[in-house]
Nucleic acid binder design. Structure first.
Lengths: 341, 341
DNA sequence: TTGTAAGCGTTATCAC
DNA sequence: GTGATAACGCTTACAA
């Protein structure tokens, strides 16, 4: 009877034997490392082709000191996250770094997600914050380079890279005020990452423009549904002339609910989002929003990892990137005469 | 000067020494494997706590025969993909399987994505098809269990699990016909996975209802933007009374464009999607759609992997799951009298 | 240039 | 129960 256990994959030893060289030469040839002569290399590569050799990454990583891997923890559904992940591939791959993903889902909460990345022996971690961070996972990190993206102000021993949420919301308010708005409400992100700061920016902006008495904060959340839901509160009261939102998703939910209720955006009410994610570009919406520079964040995150890898003395830093107002179609001058301040 | 290279993580040997047991006992204690006495186990666990020991997964996997990992290749932006990934976590984690992700992005095309999963020594692969599959990657797989989700009919040596697209579109047409529609157009998915089959179902449905002369196929694609774009073709011609779409995203793009152009959905025109992704539930849309049973697909995919792992003689199979019509708010009887057949 | 052999941190198979 | 010790498949000095 034929023994049909699954075929064993050829090892480096098999390859070496087949090519009639030592394992050392075989290894170096495969990795393009200096050493082997051109003749040897050719021979090895040919043999590899013939027997279908593929290096065992596990063994390779185990034997190596640095793994050239960067781990990324992110949320599957949030477009800011997935767009950032895509950009990270864009900067990491060309430099020979592999990106290892771990999705934050109910069955795989942040804590566990980070652990799995550490266990996978990543050289560094990029954690795209969903909600607030538990700083207690720091023991597990053992001083490996970690950058936290979009987190609230510094959480200690790791890098933080974020877009200035306060600045962003002040810009949003400023924009609306210049258009002639004064009853400007805010859809807050609740416990979401960076929510406090954005809220602060809104409040500050309102104060600066002597609009404090028009300040209205509605707690929404960070999803489309949250925005849609929170909009019903708005509809039960006197409408503001404009609403700034924690992020694009919330803004979209709000807009959809308003339009469903027969209220025009931006004619009846202006709306501003935050993130400049791809959905803000939807032709039916063309959301005015506060842009985060995702490619820049990806680049900076990766650079920080590499820098800290190269220099163990490098201290964790906090980077606050400037947001940028992107005016599209959901903001315009208020139709009704604004009440006097 | 203090030598501050990054602190070396404690190994199993360190742990064994600290706990004053052999590495074998230490290993078994950590893994909850039978063997060590309760006393030994306690001692080891305590020591592990003290020195902050974490097993090196790489080494562990290398030494083990089966890795208990299932690799998943998927697209970041497509909701069917991410929702399925989430469900896979749901079924795999509780059974002690780790899920390893590889995103298909420009810098990491399908081919490479699969390779990285194989190299990570996954026991099996779940490939969520984006576009058509290159069957030539089969060499790299070396007979490991692979299930292809959503692929077009069988591609050879791997399992295929998909929702019957033809059946789905016939159901969609059927539904529309029953509502009184006859000028029913179809927004095609182009080269997307399963597109051909769904198109076939549409054509078949139209024929069965003697509506062949009303058959209208517009090539859209698989994204919101594609749907939005393709809608402009519709607007330049006499409008159909209803449109069935390759998927939800396309349907949403279409609807948004129509509404922007002042055409009401479903009053002026009915629209049906495919997938029943979370966006089809958006309150402003409530898309009538053909549902894929994502939890079932996840469960079945995973089961197949496990089954094939257990029995190497198991042959690849094709599973075609029945789609289900979900009626929501984007379909209704046509307002204008349908022209006589 | 080439070959040899000592790790890398586990698991698993033995004797004891 | 417990403790050596040989794999696992690769990298990397080091010697030839």
């Amino acid at each position: 009877m034929e023994q049909t256990s699954r075929p064993r994959r050829p090892t480096l030893a098999d390859l070496a034997k087949h090519a009639q060289v030592s394992v050392g030469q075989a290894s170096a040839s495969i990795n393009g490392a200096p050493g082997p002569s051109e003749k040897t290399r050719k021979k090895v590569l040919k043999a590899a082709e013939e027997i279908g050799y593929r290096p065992n990454k596990l063994a390779s990583l185990l034997a190596r000191s640095a793994t050239q891997r960067v781990g990324v923890a992110f949320s599957l559904g949030r477009s800011f996250h997935t767009e950032l992940v895509e950009q990270i591939y864009e900067v990491a791959q060309p430099l020979g770094y592999e990106v290892v993903l771990s999705a934050v889902v109910p069955q795989n909460p942040v804590r566990r997600s980070i652990e799995s990345l550490v266990d996978a022996r990543c050289d560094g971690l990029i954690i795209i914050a969903a909600g607030t961070v538990e700083p207690d996972s720091s023991e597990v990190l053992r001083g490996m380079p970690v950058v936290h993206v979009g987190s609230s102000p510094s959480i200690g021993r790791v890098d933080v890279i974020r877009t200035a949420g306060d600045d962003g919301l002040q810009k949003a308010v400023e924009h609306l005020v210049q258009l002639g708005h004064n009853r400007i409400a805010y859809f807050d992100g609740g416990a979401a990452s960076g929510a406090q700061e954005r809220l602060k920016g809104y409040s500050e902006g309102m104060r600066q423009h002597r609009l404090a008495r028009h300040r209205r904060v509605i707690t929404a959340g960070q999803t489309y549904d949250a925005g849609y839901e929170a909009a019903s509160w708005l509809l039960r009261h006197r409408l503001p002339t404009a609403v700034a939102c924690y992020n694009d998703e919330v803004a979209l939910g709000l807009i959809d609910h308003l339009r469903t209720a027969g209220i025009s955006v931006p004619e009846d009410i202006s709306v501003v989002g935050f993130d400049n994610g791809h959905e803000s570009r939807m032709p039916s919406v063309r959301l005015t929003t506060i842009a985060q520079n995702i490619p820049q964040i990806a680049q900076l995150s990766f650079n920080r990892i590499v820098t800290e890898l190269a220099d163990p003395y490098e201290r964790p830093q906090e980077f606050v990137l400037p947001p940028q107002l992107v005016v599209r179609g959901t903001t315009t001058a208020p139709s009704q005469q604004p009440s006097l301040v």
